[in-house]
Nucleic acid binder design. Structure first.
Lengths: 335, 335
DNA sequence: TTGTATGCGTTATCAG
DNA sequence: CTGATAACGCATACAA
């Protein structure tokens, strides 16, 4: 473990610069020399030292990834996408979790900076005014995934799912099934995603010529509990025949609440969620929902990072990714 | 981003060695000097370079973590435990996924070696003869989590859940509920975990004075499909009143198969799973199961790594962690 | 085609 | 207490 390039040089009977070049497949080095060097390196069990290399090349071939919690299946899927593409291109992923804890966030950023990571990818939704400035000081290109509020800048790029289009997709599906009185359990106002999905809902209605009725929209909280708000919609006249829920957790809450009142899904009411979490396919009935391609988002983010590493001042447009409608058994045609 | 310790030295009117010492809180440096240096460092936006530091200190303060897939909730939870403890101790996690792909595995190990990680933690169950030798060449202490087959060695340590005890716990629970004819859908023979859970099952029976009947054991595959094997047990005479399944996926498969035949759980048959995956609490009925403390395992692994980093030739005993019985609604007393 | 010399940014050693 | 100075292991400009 203490064998350096010089040891290899000695063993191969060349200078250490030749070793360096040979191992880097420099065209200057003839095949024969290269093989001799490689044999020596192999025999000695030599492995180049990434720190020494990084010190002189001034790049670490490391990507810093900051996430709230790796235990969130969404986040895990994103990281999988990042890691795969990174690995394919010879980059390593340095993982930092913040748990929405400001102190940990600051630490994470500081550490990544010390490591001189070549780029930082943040999947943390809440990159607030808090540490966005800190982040910029890293001096490496930054890619934000599904961030809820960021002021664009030359250093900070973003990639997000198209919530408006997703909401529209979900609602249009219901319209195409013949529904006309469609309720919506929205998410918390503080989430931009909630606003956008609502906008998509309205757009779909509008395009179908269905007038928007604000009393058909009730406010959930993005969790199972919030789904119970669906019950308030049952008192609406005319009674809705379909509901678009902010997300799957909300839809699952709605499902339970409805069942407890003796309503059957989808016979009495169609239900659409959003996110396509694992659970969505396991509840009864399996949920029709909008899938967010998290793996692909991770990949695209890494792709963007690679581009920015290669051309730091490139003009890279922010990316929005389209979700996909997954039709399962919680929706059916309105006759 | 190109400000080095020398720039700080110049700004503070001291030598770069003094800066180094001041920033490291060396007792040699008086308060006043330190503050001056720190102010200068702050004003210049100085951040030490971890690569340069690592080059001279000969340790990277990085932990290599190799996992099959970060998308596996189990694995994610382990990584969370590792990352948290690592962060608390000033270590960074370098993540590598292998996807059980030999080529990627080799690459991962090679990269971690180049990085001179201070320790490697592997959560990959299948650290076969393939790359165990490779792993050892890293020259850093290695901690294996839930590995299915490793020949112990000075460099390689391990930490695993106690499957025998877990299987015993599950089975004993059924016995205590009054069941006497208890079936078992086992896992694939190649998994040591399957063998051990079966051993636990047998031990529980033996301790309760219930004779072991091999025709009460059928072979699943650890997945939902394998759960259907439970139907074969229904033909046994006397018909079992309870089944211990290799894992939750198997139990969920059993649940479905039973329901399709009109059997009710737990009225007609009690069912115990293993693992406590997220799904277990969401199926109907929620599954009684054995929880594996993955987060804790990650922490313990990191703890072990830290110990080994500090005292490389310490004699560290392998750790086995106890699972916990989670009683839900898929089991009930046999009257 | 190869070797020599230099520097990347730190920490550590040794004099003062 | 502080400052030169020498590594650490590598890539690369410049010479040969």
């Amino acid at each position: 473990m203490r064998v350096s390039i010089k040891d290899v040089a000695r063993a191969a009977g060349v200078s250490h610069s030749t070793v360096s070049r040979a191992l880097a497949h420099s065209p200057l080095i003839p095949e024969a020399t290269r093989r001799r060097v490689e044999r020596a390196a192999h025999k000695l069990g030599y492995t180049p030292n990434a720190m020494a290399r990084g010190l002189v090349t001034r790049h670490s071939r490391a990507i810093g990834v900051i996430v709230t919690s790796i235990a969130d299946p969404f986040v895990a899927e994103i990281v999988r996408g990042i890691e795969q593409l990174a690995g394919d291109h010879g980059y390593r992923v340095v993982l930092s979790t913040s748990h929405n804890n400001p102190e940990r966030e600051v630490n994470a950023v500081k550490a990544l900076r010390e490591w001189r990571v070549d780029s930082v990818i943040v999947a943390s939704s809440r990159v607030g005014a808090l540490y966005q400035p800190l982040l910029k000081e890293i001096g490496a290109p930054i890619v934000l995934i599904n961030n809820q509020s960021h002021q664009a800048s030359r250093a900070i790029h973003s990639i997000a799912v198209d919530d408006v289009r997703g909401g529209e997709l979900a609602t249009r599906h219901l319209i195409e099934l013949g529904h006309r009185v469609i309720g919506h359990v929205r998410g918390p106002a503080s989430h931009r995603a909630a606003q956008n999905r609502l906008r998509g809902y309205r757009r779909a209605l509008q395009r179908a010529g269905v007038p928007y009725d604000s009393t058909l929209v009730v406010k959930g909280d993005g969790r199972v509990e919030g789904g119970e708000q669906v019950l308030r919609l049952l008192e609406h006249q005319p009674v809705p025949t379909a509901i678009f829920c902010y997300n799957d957790m909300t839809a699952i809450g709605a499902l339970r609440a409805l069942r407890s009142r003796g309503w059957r899904v989808p016979r009495d009411l169609s239900l659409v969620g959003f996110d396509n979490i694992l659970l969505a396919s396991y509840v009864d009935p399996p949920l029709t929902t909008i899938a967010q391609p998290m793996f692909e988002m991770g990949q695209r983010a890494m792709e963007m990072a690679l581009t920015l590493i290669r051309a730091p001042r490139a003009r890279v447009a922010d990316v929005t990714i389209q979700g996909e409608l997954i039709v399962r058994a919680s929706t059916r045609a309105q006759t």
